[in-house]
């Protein structure tokens, strides 16, 4: 999806949200194009279900639209607020889904012949997703936000409503657990065994 280039692209999320709160439909359009991919990507990595992730993305954005008129400027970043909402929505869905065989993870579709590198990339991503799925919810959320979404620890702390130290602890434990889960797949995933 190509993001339309226009003057509003340089405007901050917060300014756009305030403009939307004042009835600016164009601001809504720019925010939708700017934020939805991030919201959807994070939800999809946490939920492992595209349809559920789309529902969560829509719900999170709806909550953003509803809070816009009361948005208190300077208190929180719009993206941090969204990550928090998405985290909570995902946690609710994971809790509901637990016990109904949630951990079925779809294998990547290898039916069409493609280049070796692409297949390897997909295998690696699939392995990472499987390993992520073995982590407890909070660890998974913290690791995804830190290492894939690229958020800073203070932002993650705000999104998860915990201290920065707790975030550091969660991400460190998460990474150790991931490394352990992926240890046996080093060679299959094309990594040289350097003995580290």
């Amino acid at each position: 999806m190509q993001m339309p280039f226009d003057a509003l692209n340089d405007v901050s999320d917060e300014a756009l949200l305030v403009a939307f709160g004042n009835g600016d439909r164009e601001a809504a359009r720019v925010l939708t194009y700017r934020l939805t991919p991030r919201v959807l990507g994070y939800a999809a990595r946490i939920l492992k279900d595209r349809a559920e992730a789309e529902d969560v993305a829509q719900e999170a954005m709806l909550r953003l639209w509803k809070i816009a008129p009361e948005w208190r400027q300077g208190e929180a970043k719009v993206t941090t607020w969204l990550y928090r909402v998405v985290t909570n929505l995902c946690t609710d869905r994971l809790r509901k889904a637990r016990g109904t065989g949630l951990d079925e993870i779809a294998e990547p579709e290898d039916d069409r012949p493609s280049q070796e590198a692409e297949i390897m990339t997909r295998q690696r991503l699939s392995a990472l997703e499987k390993a992520l799925a073995t982590l407890p919810d909070r660890q998974r959320q913290a690791v995804v936000m830190r290492h894939i979404e690229g958020l800073g620890n203070p932002e993650i702390a705000e999104a998860l409503d915990i201290s920065v130290e707790a975030v550091e602890s969660l991400t460190a434990r998460g990474k150790r657990a991931l490394a352990k889960a992926l240890a046996s797949e080093r060679e299959r995933l094309g990594f040289e065994d350097d003995g580290s």
């Binding site: 991503l125 990472l128 990594f191």
Partner: peptide, 10 residues
């Protein structure tokens, strides 16, 4: 390194 590479790809 392996994890970092995987994260970068993700």
């Amino acid at each position: 390194e392996m994890l970092d590479a995987l994260f970068a790809e993700a």
